[in-house]
Amino acid sequence: MRTSAVRFDGVSRHYGEVRAVDAVDLDIAEGEFFAMLGPSGSGKTTCLRLIAGFEQPTDGDIVIFGETAQGVPPYKRHVNTVFQDYALFPHLNVLDNVAYGLMIAGKPKRERHAAAEAALELVALPGYGARKPSELSGGQRQRVALARALINEPRVLLLDEPLGALDLKLREQMQDELKDLQRKLGITFIFVTHDQGEALSMADRVAVFNEGKIVQIGKPEDIYYRPEVPFVADFVGSSNVLPPRVVEKMAGQWSHASVRPEAVKLVDAGIGADGLHATVHSTAFIGTATRVSLDLDGFSMVALLPKGARIPDAGEQVHVTWGSEDLHLMDAA
């Protein structure tokens, strides 16, 4: 059993009536790359701030490496943060920004500057020390923020929407680099994102947040293929959620079920008699596939049709089918 890096025991953070975080239990192992995924306002960022110490839980306990974080101020926690807006000090150059933690720790100038140079090397920004943060691009600022957070050799690195402000290409590159960095350093990374692609591709485990609670926690494949609740099916990769009355007819069980859009097949209404009757609402070409929105009896579905498939016209009547292995039953709603 690996050591637990961060553990939440029934942690809540309430602001008056608002339950930003509500009775969350969580156990993140040492060396794990852990993602907190959810829409804005779901409590994921508050959880991160609770670990960093910027917020105090109204209830429950947070345990960091076996010690309670109760009443421990941020500056006494062996946890560092990469902020969403990077929060680089505008009055300091890059080198002094990175060396800030060591300056506070009272390390002599020569030593901390050498360490800062090494940290900049680690994030592939050697020789940028003399510049001001305002002279850097978004991607470079991100790397500086990363180097600054790593200089104190934290045991847990917290990343708040670290890639949110970057463009798509840079984002994909940084995803790989962050993953490599985490493997190289072997420390725990906890990162918050609203981008399911980011969470699925980078993390060892993902916790999906909704309304202050964790609705599902597990490996990316589990979250993606085996959502336990309709919210996860819908939020992670936009699965189709089938209402219980339809599922009961098809699978004989009263529960929600999900079908991934890429598993959905369309058959001309005239040919197949099996499957669900649907009307094509609209189609949209999205590059790798064509997205077809379908109206069914009282609910809607989305199908992703691969290149080469016949694309129906809007208003056309079709039958919707999928392989029985693609239908994933969820716990009764």
Partner: peptide, 8 residues
């Protein structure tokens, strides 16, 4: 917060 986070 960044400053506090870095130990100040």
């Amino acid at each position: 917060e960044a400053s506090m986070d870095l130990g100040a």
